[in-house]
Design a protein around this nucleic acid. Structure first.
Lengths: 338, 338
DNA sequence: CGCTAGCTTGTTAACGTCAACATGTCTAGA
DNA sequence: TCTAGACATGTTGACGTTAACAAGCTAGCG
């Protein structure tokens, strides 16, 4: 059994002052005599005083705590965003509570549900891809400020996300500019709005340039799915340029191309999306679209804190632009006389 | 400004009962008439009652909350473990608070420090590699239960970790069993206990078999460092087998080998450590040592909750065994007539 | 010298919940 | 019929903190 720690009253007794004075010192408030302050500080140290955040939260009506709902922390993007949100929130004086949506096979989607059913956070940041959010049927308590990190505009919450459309466009244009006739796309799962956005932008870019739109192939973000789909692409001699919807799938695609002896970039050029740390060490190093996750995290926290302060939310979505990182996996098409 | 939500008193008024009865219903306690219970439940729904966790924590003296101190969430292992800890804690009815150690360059190592200086969690799980822990000089409040996920035995806390020694041994033995004369090691940073354990076990395994111990080369866990060090290894024709301390560095090593036209596994065999999802899609697919992160997470939470309950901690470290996953990156050495 | 303004310090009450105790009602058995 | 006991419900106070108010003291000024 844990026993309770020393409280303000203990410190006050030792320092010979009232509890209020201790509170003032603890919160660094003015109007406390220097000598008194020192005496209180010394007493705090002596008894090992630590403020009780529960009492504070109860008194002040706010928890200084942001809940982050996350479905899978294994995927690269979610993890990076989560980390960035953590950093930003900490810097802003907020703690982060992880609210994992337990796997359905674990039979307890209720994990997040029950946790949300009590007041413990001032606001929520959702890192789930929106379709999954539908499926999970999370009932968010009314009046709880929410920010969604995703590209869907379907929700009545402020949205922050990477500019998927811009990213997919520069990826596609890069390949076209190199001289490829058209660009194939290894898309993400249709349940993902981000994947949908990237696919649509790829398509629009091709159409805008008057190019043929090859049939769409989709994976599930995993490298394994990239490999499976990649084998089809590798078998088709028409394919000279592929834009993969993320780096992981690009990795699987590279493997499939190696296996079938199609040289990258001589025979086939590949572009990824994310710029995960290891992309520069793929074989060959991957040209890819860099996302700025820390910006996304910062904006999300900022938007939430603004909502916390004003009580009303802005519906202007925040879009964080991407950047093309050119590496060795892209080159002009074979027999190109450009 | 956020206004407070409805409290037990509001529900009680509406249902025409006392607050205590509402409390009983909220906590699913017995000795409440079915009709009354239904009435209270209906009232709760009507006003949108959600229990105030701060008041509960204040009253009960415990927060049902576990703090996780983490240095970097970008590395594969930490992320996976964090996720596993989150799942396990949620299943056990505890919330998880992320306590990030802000980057030193952000000038605020105090992030975790200040957060820890208040009572907000019942216990702590540290995912930091122990040497970093020294540097950061986190002063953990006395009496706060702590579990460390690491391989150092230097700490006065319960330890849970993957069995690094066993993992490094099976990796090394696998290569020796294939017929390689000796095995080179691409080690992790010397600041990491996990890296130290893996290195030592690799060395001991070689010595036990009477093999020459090649000079140690180290990276910093990143794929980029694996590439840098890998170029030296690739340039040395003596090298026929390399055990990389993690998959990321193995990826960089593979790139270096490809660049210098040394065939894997024909000329050089490579083994990694972690079995991250994409390892099976490396070129060639990587033989590696699989870690069971969810087991580590479960054990860590279990150990902490046990400590919470009994108030005393067990010093028996928990070691989670690994498993060798054999893929295409390993084969007998060139000209092997075994 | 009297009065005000400003600073330091203290007192009280309330935030929402629930254990402990108190009270009231009903049933079963003597 | 009376009583013990089980069950349903209510009352009180305390967890630790801090806003709001109150009170005491000192310095400055007319």
């Amino acid at each position: 059994m844990r026993r309770r720690g020393p409280s303000i009253a203990d410190v006050a007794r030792l320092a010979g002052v009232s509890g209020q004075t201790v509170s003032r010192v603890a919160n660094d408030r003015p109007n406390v005599d220097t000598a008194t302050r020192d005496r209180v500080l010394a007493a705090m140290r002596e008894v090992g005083y630590r403020p009780n955040s529960a009492a504070r939260a109860l008194r002040n009506g706010q928890f200084r705590n942001i809940g982050v709902i996350v479905f899978e922390l294994s995927s690269f993007g979610n993890t990076r965003t989560f980390n960035a949100v953590g950093q930003a929130a900490t810097a802003a004086g907020y703690a982060i509570t992880l609210i994992p949506l337990l796997d359905a096979d674990q039979g307890k989607v209720t994990g997040a549900f029950t946790r949300l059913q009590e007041q413990a956070v001032d606001g929520i940041i959702i890192l789930i891809e929106a379709h999954q959010l539908d499926e999970a049927e999370i009932h968010l308590p009314e009046g709880l400020p929410v920010v969604v990190v995703d590209s869907s505009a379907h929700y009545d919450y402020p949205i922050v996300d990477t500019d998927q459309a811009q990213g997919a466009r520069i990826a596609t244009e890069h390949l076209l500019d190199l001289g490829h006739e058209t660009v194939w796309h290894l898309g993400g799962p249709p349940t993902s709005f981000a994947a949908t956005r990237r696919r649509r932008s790829w398509e629009e870019t091709l159409i805008a340039r008057g190019r043929r739109v090859p049939p769409l192939l989709v994976g599930d973000w995993s490298a394994a799915s990239g490999y499976t789909v990649g084998r089809q692409l590798a078998a088709d001699p028409d394919v000279t340029a592929v834009f993969a919807a993320n780096d992981e799938m690009a990795l699987g695609l590279l493997r499939a191309l190696h296996e079938q002896n199609r040289k990258v970039p001589t025979d086939v050029s590949v572009v990824g999306f994310d710029d995960q740390e290891s992309a520069a060490q793929f074989w060959p190093p991957l040209t890819t679209v860099r996302q700025f996750f820390s910006d996304v995290g910062n904006h999300a926290v900022e938007a939430l804190i603004a909502e916390l302060a004003t009580g009303e939310h802005h519906h202007r979505p925040v879009s964080v632009p991407t950047q093309l990182i050119t590496r060795a996996s892209t080159a002009p098409p074979p027999n190109f006389a450009g």
